[in-house]
Design a protein around this nucleic acid. Structure first.
Lengths: 101, 101
DNA sequence: GCTTACCGTTAGTGATTACTTACCGACAGC
DNA sequence: GCTGTCGGTAAGTAATCACTAACGGTAAGC
């Protein structure tokens, strides 16, 4: 099973992309709506959406001439479980360290 | 309460910094140990550690001439709770959308 | 058919960011 | 005291990355 974790964390490392994800929290939105009130041009938004899509953080669906984007549950689930595992392993290592002494 | 989320996610957006965090999962390590087997120089590691520290993702402690770095529980807890909240809000919005129809 | 709205892609540019090299201070061992 | 180890900082460079402008393609409205 391949993960997209590296791409996902890279994708989250940009403030504009994070803003896009925040906007999508309340549901699917077309590109034009996403680009509204952003300090960057619409093509820039398209490029960011491509990165987010490749990282499995968003999904898109064409409806007429519009293209709706929404959060991708698979990507977020993978990210959450990784973070959980990462942290619980760190805690176990810490406990083992304490008991060692 | 101020959070360091923006800095944290920016900090996670670099492969070398993520590698450093992975190494720290098993416990505290001095800089020289962290720099070992990495494709970048030791000063580069120091600079990355500074970024991680400012983002509250690591803590450091001087012991003699060495400086040990370890994961910062506060930063990771904040990050986890944010991701959890983010995702649960997204799920609620999705449910509301479904019931709407 | 024509026109308009919506959006992806490409090419080139600008800004950000990670990197190395050189340097310096602090502590340990002698 | 001197020497070696450890590691942070600064300056300059290289590479990455985000951005805009220009273009083209598709669907909807007329």
């Amino acid at each position: 099973m391949i993960t997209y974790r590296q791409q996902q964390l890279d994708a989250l490392g940009d403030v504009t992309r994070r803003t896009l994800l925040e906007k999508l929290r309340s549901g699917a939105l077309p590109v034009g709506e996403l680009a509204k009130n952003l300090p960057v041009s619409r093509p820039a938004v398209s490029q960011h959406l491509r990165v987010l899509k490749q990282a499995r953080l968003v999904q898109d669906e064409a409806v007429g001439t519009r293209r709706y984007y929404k959060l991708d549950p698979r990507g977020f689930a993978a990210l959450r479980s990784y973070l959980d595992r990462f942290w619980s392993e760190a805690l176990e290592a810490f406990k083992a360290k304490v008991e060692e002494e």
